[in-house]
Protein backbone atom coordinates (compact mmCIF):
# COMPACT_ATOMS: atom_id res chain seq x y z
CA UNK A 1 0.00 0.00 0.00
CA UNK A 2 2.82 2.31 0.93
CA UNK A 3 4.61 1.58 -2.38
CA UNK A 4 1.41 2.23 -4.26
CA UNK A 5 1.07 5.60 -2.59
CA UNK A 6 4.62 6.47 -3.42
CA UNK A 7 4.11 5.44 -7.04
CA UNK A 8 0.97 7.52 -7.20
CA UNK A 9 2.78 10.54 -5.85
CA UNK A 10 5.65 10.12 -8.32
CA UNK A 11 3.22 9.71 -11.21
CA UNK A 12 1.33 12.82 -10.12
CA UNK A 13 4.54 14.84 -9.88
CA UNK A 14 5.75 13.63 -13.28
CA UNK A 15 2.39 14.46 -14.86
CA UNK A 16 2.36 17.85 -13.19
CA UNK A 17 5.84 18.79 -14.34
CA UNK A 18 5.16 17.36 -17.78
CA UNK A 19 1.96 19.36 -18.03
CA UNK A 20 3.43 22.59 -16.71
CA UNK A 21 6.82 22.76 -18.32
CA UNK A 22 5.68 23.40 -21.92
CA UNK A 23 3.56 26.31 -20.62
CA UNK A 24 6.42 27.58 -18.51
CA UNK A 25 8.83 27.28 -21.41
CA UNK A 26 6.53 29.16 -23.76
CA UNK A 27 5.87 31.82 -21.09
CA UNK A 28 9.61 32.26 -20.59
CA UNK A 29 10.29 32.50 -24.30
CA UNK A 30 7.44 35.03 -24.79
CA UNK A 31 8.90 37.13 -21.96
CA UNK A 32 12.43 36.86 -23.33
CA UNK A 33 11.19 38.10 -26.71
CA UNK A 34 9.56 41.12 -25.03
CA UNK A 35 12.73 41.92 -23.06
CA UNK A 36 14.95 41.61 -26.14
CA UNK A 37 12.58 43.96 -27.95
CA UNK A 38 13.30 46.63 -25.34
CA UNK A 39 17.01 45.88 -24.98
CA UNK A 40 17.57 46.05 -28.76
CA UNK A 41 16.68 49.76 -28.71
CA UNK A 42 18.11 50.56 -25.25
CA UNK A 43 21.38 52.44 -24.92
CA UNK A 44 22.96 50.14 -22.34
CA UNK A 45 22.66 46.41 -21.78
CA UNK A 46 19.59 45.75 -19.60
CA UNK A 47 20.30 45.50 -15.87
CA UNK A 48 18.35 43.91 -13.02
CA UNK A 49 20.15 46.27 -10.62
CA UNK A 50 18.83 49.37 -12.34
CA UNK A 51 15.38 47.74 -12.57
CA UNK A 52 15.43 47.18 -8.81
CA UNK A 53 16.43 50.79 -8.19
CA UNK A 54 13.58 52.00 -10.40
CA UNK A 55 11.06 49.75 -8.63
CA UNK A 56 12.18 50.95 -5.21
CA UNK A 57 12.50 54.63 -6.11
CA UNK A 58 9.95 57.23 -5.17
CA UNK A 59 9.97 59.77 -7.99
CA UNK A 60 6.62 61.38 -6.99
CA UNK A 61 6.59 63.10 -10.38
CA UNK A 62 3.27 61.85 -11.66
CA UNK A 63 -0.10 61.77 -9.93
CA UNK A 64 -0.07 62.71 -6.24
CA UNK A 65 -1.74 59.46 -5.12
CA UNK A 66 0.90 57.23 -6.72
CA UNK A 67 4.39 58.51 -5.79
CA UNK A 68 6.08 55.13 -6.43
CA UNK A 69 5.60 51.65 -7.89
CA UNK A 70 5.44 50.29 -4.36
CA UNK A 71 2.40 52.45 -3.52
CA UNK A 72 0.21 49.82 -5.18
CA UNK A 73 2.55 46.87 -5.82
CA UNK A 74 3.89 46.70 -2.25
CA UNK A 75 7.49 46.87 -1.05
CA UNK A 76 8.47 43.46 -2.44
CA UNK A 77 7.86 41.99 -5.90
CA UNK A 78 7.42 38.62 -4.19
CA UNK A 79 4.19 39.59 -2.43
CA UNK A 80 0.78 40.81 -3.58
CA UNK A 81 -0.05 44.47 -3.86
CA UNK A 82 -3.34 46.30 -3.72
CA UNK A 83 -4.98 48.90 -5.93
CA UNK A 84 -6.18 52.14 -4.36
CA UNK A 85 -9.72 50.82 -4.78
CA UNK A 86 -8.89 47.71 -2.73
CA UNK A 87 -8.37 45.01 -5.38
CA UNK A 88 -5.41 42.64 -4.96
CA UNK A 89 -2.53 42.81 -7.49
CA UNK A 90 -0.66 39.57 -8.15
CA UNK A 91 3.05 39.61 -7.27
CA UNK A 92 5.25 40.85 -10.14
CA UNK A 93 8.14 38.43 -9.48
CA UNK A 94 8.13 35.89 -12.27
CA UNK A 95 9.06 33.09 -9.83
CA UNK A 96 5.74 33.69 -8.09
CA UNK A 97 3.49 34.66 -11.01
CA UNK A 98 4.77 32.68 -13.98
CA UNK A 99 2.51 34.27 -16.61
CA UNK A 100 3.75 37.80 -15.86
CA UNK A 101 5.06 39.90 -18.79
CA UNK A 102 4.21 37.41 -21.52
CA UNK A 103 1.70 39.55 -23.46
CA UNK A 104 3.33 42.52 -25.20
CA UNK A 105 0.09 44.51 -25.55
CA UNK A 106 -0.62 44.14 -21.86
CA UNK A 107 2.96 45.01 -20.92
CA UNK A 108 2.87 48.17 -23.05
CA UNK A 109 -0.53 49.19 -21.72
CA UNK A 110 0.51 48.98 -18.07
CA UNK A 111 3.93 50.61 -18.61
CA UNK A 112 2.18 53.49 -20.39
CA UNK A 113 -0.40 53.96 -17.62
CA UNK A 114 1.78 53.35 -14.60
CA UNK A 115 4.88 55.25 -15.77
CA UNK A 116 2.61 58.26 -16.39
CA UNK A 117 0.96 57.82 -12.99
CA UNK A 118 4.27 57.49 -11.10
CA UNK A 119 6.91 59.26 -13.23
CA UNK A 120 4.64 61.70 -15.05
CA UNK A 121 6.00 60.48 -18.40
CA UNK A 122 6.30 57.31 -20.45
CA UNK A 123 9.20 55.02 -19.54
CA UNK A 124 12.11 54.57 -21.93
CA UNK A 125 12.89 51.21 -23.54
CA UNK A 126 15.93 51.09 -21.25
CA UNK A 127 13.78 51.46 -18.12
CA UNK A 128 11.27 48.88 -19.34
CA UNK A 129 14.00 46.39 -20.18
CA UNK A 130 15.72 46.94 -16.82
CA UNK A 131 12.45 46.61 -14.92
CA UNK A 132 11.43 43.35 -16.62
CA UNK A 133 14.93 41.94 -16.19
CA UNK A 134 14.70 42.62 -12.46
CA UNK A 135 11.23 41.04 -12.19
CA UNK A 136 12.40 37.99 -14.17
CA UNK A 137 15.32 37.53 -11.77
CA UNK A 138 12.96 37.39 -8.77
Amino acid sequence: MKTLNKTNVITAVVLLIGGLSPNLASANSARDTIISGFSSVAELPVSAERGKALFESSPAAGKPDTPSCTTCHGASPMTSGMTRAGKPIEPMAVSVTAERFTDLKKVQKWFRRNCKSVLGRECTAQEKGDFLTFMSSR
Binding site: G62, K63, K109, R112, R113, S117
Partner: peptide, 12 residues
Amino acid sequence: LSDHFGEDASLD
Protein backbone atom coordinates in the same frame (compact mmCIF):
# COMPACT_ATOMS: atom_id res chain seq x y z
CA LEU B 1 -9.28 58.26 -18.83
CA SER B 2 -5.75 59.65 -18.69
CA ASP B 3 -6.67 61.17 -15.32
CA HIS B 4 -9.07 58.62 -13.93
CA PHE B 5 -9.56 59.51 -10.26
CA GLY B 6 -5.86 60.11 -9.79
CA GLU B 7 -4.46 57.45 -12.11
CA ASP B 8 -3.75 57.05 -15.80
CA ALA B 9 -6.29 54.52 -17.12
CA SER B 10 -5.89 55.36 -20.81
CA LEU B 11 -6.95 52.79 -23.41
CA ASP B 12 -6.51 52.38 -27.14
